[in-house]
Amino acid sequence: MESQPVIHPVAAGFFEQDTLTLAQSLLGCLLVKKTEEGVAAGFIVETEAYMGATDRAAHSYRERRTKRTEIMYHSPGHVYTYKMHTHCLVNVVSGGEGIPHAILIRAVDPHIGIGLMYERRQVKMEKQLTSGPGKLTKALGITMEDYGRVFYEPPLFIAEGYVPVSISNGPRIGIDHTGEARQYPYRFWVTDNPFVSR
């Protein structure tokens, strides 16, 4: 059995960028989750930024500070997980302490632990493993128990990857009832990557 290379988390300071810049800087980074079953990781290829109290699509719109959104008010680099239907979705807290911004990780390109991802997802095509925010969390083993962790320490962390040749952007997905906010071009993806959700 081949040993996995040692992967180091990025420094906490990496997350201290403005939210829209960070949403693009995350593209190409490696999202890693260590569990008892093994390590699974993929390169981030799609993100969506949510801009806090003035963004009607954000959970923290109008400073909605609840038990669910409390972690959004913490320092950048914290893990914000939440349930949507039966899926767990994972976000990077951004924007600075007290500024409840977050970046949804929408898709990753599988890199480590692909066999483990197939076991968890029970799909036949590799493209189906991680091409959506609920798919990637199941494939990597990210759960609601990760809420409140930080992305710069194991077991769930972000590491250096590659710099995309080209980044595209456009409106976010699945937020139809949010007025003009649904048109904001806050979704970013690695151009032409097959794992982008759509």
Score class of each variant (00 low, 15 high):
153 E>V: 14
118 Y>V: 04
152 Y>F: 15
141 G>E: 10
138 K>Y: 08
145 E>S: 15
111 H>T: 14
149 R>Q: 15
146 D>A: 14
139 A>D: 07
145 E>Q: 15
157 F>S: 04
119 E>A: 08
109 D>C: 05
133 P>N: 06
157 F>H: 02
125 M>V: 14
150 V>H: 12
129 L>H: 00
157 F>W: 06
104 L>T: 01
126 E>F: 12
131 S>K: 09
124 K>E: 15
120 R>I: 08
150 V>P: 11
145 E>M: 13
149 R>H: 13
117 M>C: 07
154 P>A: 12
119 E>F: 06
115 G>A: 10
122 Q>M: 10
152 Y>E: 13
125 M>N: 13
104 L>M: 02
121 R>I: 03
113 G>N: 03
130 T>R: 00
116 L>S: 01
144 M>N: 15
136 L>C: 05
152 Y>S: 11
153 E>M: 15
107 A>E: 03
105 I>C: 07
106 R>T: 09
119 E>K: 12
156 L>E: 05
117 M>Y: 02
131 S>N: 15
123 V>C: 05
118 Y>E: 01
120 R>T: 05
152 Y>L: 12
130 T>V: 09
125 M>F: 14
113 G>S: 09
143 T>Q: 10
156 L>R: 03
136 L>P: 08
157 F>M: 06
132 G>Q: 01
147 Y>R: 13
119 E>V: 05
131 S>M: 08
132 G>S: 05
149 R>S: 13
147 Y>P: 14
153 E>S: 15
113 G>T: 03
120 R>G: 00
155 P>V: 10
103 I>Q: 04
151 F>E: 10
121 R>Y: 03
146 D>Q: 12
135 K>Q: 11
138 K>P: 13
121 R>M: 05
108 V>K: 00
126 E>G: 09
115 G>S: 12
101 H>L: 03
149 R>C: 13
104 L>N: 01
132 G>D: 01
151 F>M: 11
121 R>N: 05
135 K>P: 06
115 G>W: 03
123 V>T: 05
145 E>I: 10
123 V>F: 08
130 T>N: 03
120 R>H: 04
109 D>S: 11
124 K>H: 11
146 D>E: 14
121 R>K: 06
123 V>K: 03
129 L>D: 00
105 I>A: 04
110 P>H: 01
137 T>S: 00
139 A>T: 07
146 D>S: 13
128 Q>V: 04
148 G>L: 01
102 A>V: 02
146 D>I: 10
149 R>D: 14
